[in-house]
Design a protein around this nucleic acid. Structure first.
Lengths: 204, 204
DNA sequence: CCTTGATTTGACCAACTGGTCAAACTCACG
DNA sequence: CGTGAGTTTGACCAGTTGGTCAAATCAAGG
């Protein structure tokens, strides 16, 4: 185990390499489907050497998840109560879509966990995420009550944004097969903007 | 191995119990995360006894998948070229939503596979699903060209229906945590109907 | 260059897992 | 009720996996 002192150059490099490799492996095989050996090889280390930096497979996973969740919720946090409602929501949709394009592994890692019942995430969801969702659902409800966007169940609205955007990362294998040569991310931004604009623009 | 004759009463009962148990186990832990022992126990059999009915873990999985895919695509097949376009699409959305409510395990089993890159499904997707999607995308495009529904990328339209409806099954753990006491399926049908009606009703 | 702590590794272990097999048991039917 | 096919199981095996450990190697400051 590395000492408690300030991390050495080697420690920083290897811990980063391990987390990067673990993201790759965990996101494409799930926790149970991944082996320490796989991660070690992907990080260019031997298995005992990897376990010199992290005490266990689970510890790697947890550190990865902790780091992920923070950045994962940033786009929603950025929903500005003082902005123009429709534009705020559309911008949020585009930020989420960007994340699916730029960080598909993170999205799949998260999806893997939730699909399997979130055994290692239940607490975090019940705590941090719940608070954030309540706050933003309330904000959306306020905009609807003020007639600035069309009415819709605010939580279902959030769910729909998550599912529509993350779909392009999580179901990438299916989407790409069905789209052939066309890059899904060419038309997706336009499609989602149209969808939410038509849905939320206040009726005259 | 059971003989080639017509299946006995016991064979029918046990094979059904195994497939039912396997659906439970595979859908909540993924293929790699599931063990033959788990499935056997859930089916009320010993491991060797289970392997008397199926030659391998993979064989169980494959039989499960083959049976699933057929029924999984039925709602899309039922999209009727001769129907009223908007109502056809809305009915399809509701059928898919029903499936998420009534067969969440099947949805998660499928999701588990796709998220992990569809290693055991690539051929089927590239073949059957692709043909069906091309056909229905063409139908949707026709409706748009005739001005009977608003324009939108037809494949992305299909993706959006899949992702929005399956989300309630696949991310059930998250959705239920965030909805508290409220049953997600109370408001979901209404929400999705409104969404697609606003989106697709032709502009005047 | 030498010491000391940091890093790396081969060898190893125990638990688990998918699968086999021969022997035992059960059932349906003549 | 006897018999042969159908069914069940305990014992077992080989490969994999997460994790340990002592010994070897390396890096950096004195």
């Amino acid at each position: 185990m590395p000492s408690d002192r300030a991390p050495t150059r080697i420690q920083r490099k290897n811990r980063a390499a391990i987390l990067e490799a673990a993201l790759d492996v965990f996101s494409s095989h799930g926790f149970r489907g991944s082996t320490v050996d796989q991660i070690a090889k992907a990080a260019g280390l031997s298995k005992p050497n990897l376990l010199y930096y992290f005490p266990s497979k689970e510890a790697i996973f947890n550190e990865l998840m902790a780091g992920l969740l923070d950045t994962w919720l940033d786009p929603l946090r950025a929903l500005d109560p003082d902005g123009e409602p429709l534009e705020e929501i559309l911008a949020y949709v585009q930020r989420k879509l960007q994340m699916s394009r730029d960080y598909p592994r993170e999205s799949r890692l998260y999806a893997n966990e939730i699909v399997q019942g979130a055994p290692r995430l239940h607490d975090v969801i019940a705590a941090d995420l719940n608070v954030l969702v309540e706050e933003k659902a309330h904000l959306l409800q306020g905009w609807m009550d003020a007639g600035r966007i069309n009415r819709a169940h605010p939580k279902h609205l959030l769910f729909s944004i998550w599912s529509l955007t993350q779909h392009y990362a999580d179901f990438d294998a299916q989407v790409r097969t069905l789209m052939g040569d066309e890059d899904p991310f060419d038309a997706a931004p336009q499609y989602l903007e149209t969808l939410y604009r038509r849905m939320l623009t206040p009726n005259i």
